[in-house]
């Protein structure tokens, strides 16, 4: 067993024992599952109404009845994804922070560093451990969400839907890993834990809340509930034509949004889950083509923060300081 594996396994063991971890994960899971359950219940009512309407019709009328409404069960995950974006990022940061701070504050980092292993192996072990932890937590949350959609919402999911779910799951895993690695980087580097928390919370506020909020505010379609163009009765084709007159503004707004990994993750997840109307019937390859750049950006940002963390771990004082 390599040193990285040994540390990763220890990280997983610590997470299982940690009350803080249990509390955060329970809170996050409940927030997501309640949102999916509520959405599924509403979806289930719509399905029941529709089925009742159908059964009330005579066979003759059924032939002339309205076509089955387009209901996309995966859109029920919208609020869950938003919780992952906001709370998930915060909790991933806290868990990454704790992973380093507890070694330093307990003084156990000295024992680790006196072994014939490198700081890089320690950091990598922790990253792999956290990746495994997030994978399991997300798998449970996703499975429970699907369960709610199927049982409470009576939604029907096909193979393509499971593929969409899998892509959104991987995206969420990488997104949360980004925040945990970021926490490891700054906690390893900062002399004081308080400084690390301050930098972390500020970054979380800017990336998760401020930038996406500014982007949303700049979006003309967000100015009126239900959408500006829809409320004015403007067709989609005309909307595109109107927006073409505001190209520079739109480039600016888009440019701002893509600086936030949260917004990138949201775009990708919403597109693959069909939360965005435009993509709920599109093939996976169409969505992948449309969001290839965003997917690449998420991967690059995560790899970049990982590389920076590895470079920081070269520093002599990394992991060693004890502070409070």
């Amino acid at each position: 067993m390599s040193n990285i594996t040994v540390i990763a396994r220890k990280e997983i063991g610590d997470a299982i024992r940690s009350r803080q971890m249990l509390l955060l994960v329970t809170f996050l899971s409940l927030a997501i599952l309640i949102s999916v359950w509520v959405a599924s219940a509403s979806f289930g009512l719509k399905m029941t109404d529709y089925n009742a309407y159908l059964s009330a019709l005579t066979p003759q009328q059924r032939l002339q009845a309205l076509t089955r409404p387009q209901l996309f069960p995966l859109t029920l995950l919208r609020s869950g994804i938003e919780y992952l974006e906001i709370l998930g990022a915060l909790f991933a940061f806290i868990i990454g922070f704790t992973s380093i701070s507890r070694e330093r504050s307990r003084g156990t980092s000295l024992l680790l560093l006196s072994r014939p292993i490198t700081k890089r192996e320690i950091i990598l072990g922790k990253i792999f451990g956290l990746f495994a932890i997030w994978s399991v937590i997300l798998a449970i949350i996703y499975a429970a969400s699907v369960g709610a959609i199927l049982t409470v919402g009576h939604g029907q999911l096909g193979a393509i839907d499971y593929a969409r779910l899998l892509i959104a799951f991987v995206g969420a895993d990488i997104y949360l890993l980004f925040w945990s690695i970021f926490a490891i980087a700054i906690t390893s580097r900062m002399k004081q834990f308080a400084s690390a928390i301050l930098v972390g919370i500020t970054s979380w506020l800017v990336v998760v809340l401020v930038i996406p909020q500014i982007g949303d505010t700049m979006d003309p379609d967000n100015q009126v509930p239900g959408g500006l163009f829809a409320s004015l009765g403007i067709l989609k084709s005309n909307e595109i034509s109107i927006l073409s007159h505001f190209h520079t503004f739109d480039v600016l707004r888009n440019g701002l949004e893509v600086t936030s990994i949260t917004k990138l993750f949201e775009r990708v997840a919403f597109a693959f889950l069909g939360v965005k109307d435009k993509y709920n019937q599109a093939s996976l390859s169409t969505v992948a083509r449309a969001f290839g750049t965003s997917i690449a950006a998420i991967l690059i940002l995560t790899i970049l923060v990982g590389v920076i963390t590895m470079m920081i771990s070269k520093n002599e004082e990394t992991l060693k300081r004890r502070s409070s």
Partner: peptide, 20 residues
């Protein structure tokens, strides 16, 4: 450094373990 650490043992002044 790896070979050095392989050939030494170290007891810090106030040794701390994973108490749990």
């Amino acid at each position: 450094p790896k070979q050095v650490r392989q050939s030494i043992g170290y007891l810090p002044e106030s040794v701390q373990f994973y108490e749990y």
